[in-house]
Amino acid sequence: MTISQDLTWNEHVENIVKKAGRRLYMMYQLKRAGITQKDLVSIYVSMVRPVLEYVWQTNLPQYISDNIEVIQKRALKCIFP
């Protein structure tokens, strides 16, 4: 968890989005390598979703939630084209 000087969630969410984005990039690489859709779902559920859910448990302003939602949609687009 990242605690900023002004005690907002912005920096923490930014770090979480970056972390999830790196894992999502790995999923795209595995998809290009020919991994099955079932395995992609397993990877998403075990590696990407927990990172995003850690943030979802807080009461965030809409503009911050939107940043997380973008990653979520990109992951689903990777799994279900």
Rank of each mutant, 00 (worst) to 15 (best):
N59A: 12
E11R: 11
S4W: 03
K73L: 05
L76S: 08
Y54L: 14
N59L: 05
V13Y: 01
A33M: 08
K38I: 04
Q37S: 08
L76H: 14
W9C: 05
Q62E: 12
I3W: 02
V51D: 03
N10S: 12
G21L: 00
Q37D: 00
V45D: 00
E53W: 08
E69L: 10
I35H: 02
K31I: 13
Y63F: 08
N15P: 00
L40Y: 06
K38P: 00
V70T: 07
R32C: 09
Q62L: 15
A75I: 07
I43N: 02
Q5V: 11
Q29S: 13
S42D: 04
F80L: 08
I3M: 06
K19C: 03
V55Q: 11
S46L: 07
N10G: 10
R22E: 06
K38T: 12
L30I: 10
Q29V: 14
Q29Y: 12
V48S: 02
F80D: 02
I35D: 00
S65M: 10
K73H: 09
D66E: 07
S42V: 09
K31L: 10
R49I: 14
K77V: 06
I35Q: 05
Y44G: 01
M26C: 03
Y44H: 06
V13D: 01
A33E: 09
V45T: 03
P61L: 12
V13E: 01
L52W: 12
E11Y: 06
V41C: 05
R74G: 03
R49Y: 15
V41S: 02
Q37I: 06
R23K: 13
Q5E: 00
C78L: 09
P50G: 13
V48F: 09
N59M: 07
R22C: 01
Q37T: 12
P50M: 10
Y44L: 02
Q72N: 06
K19T: 11
G34C: 05
I68Q: 08
L40T: 02
N67K: 15
Q62G: 13
K19F: 08
M47G: 07
K38R: 15
Y25C: 10
P61Y: 04
Q57M: 10
A20S: 05
M1V: 09
Q57E: 04
Y25T: 14
Y54F: 15
L40R: 15
Y63N: 05
P50L: 12
N10I: 13
C78M: 11
L40H: 07
I43K: 06
M27V: 08
K77D: 03
Q72P: 01
Y44I: 00
C78F: 08
A33Y: 08
V45N: 06
A20F: 06
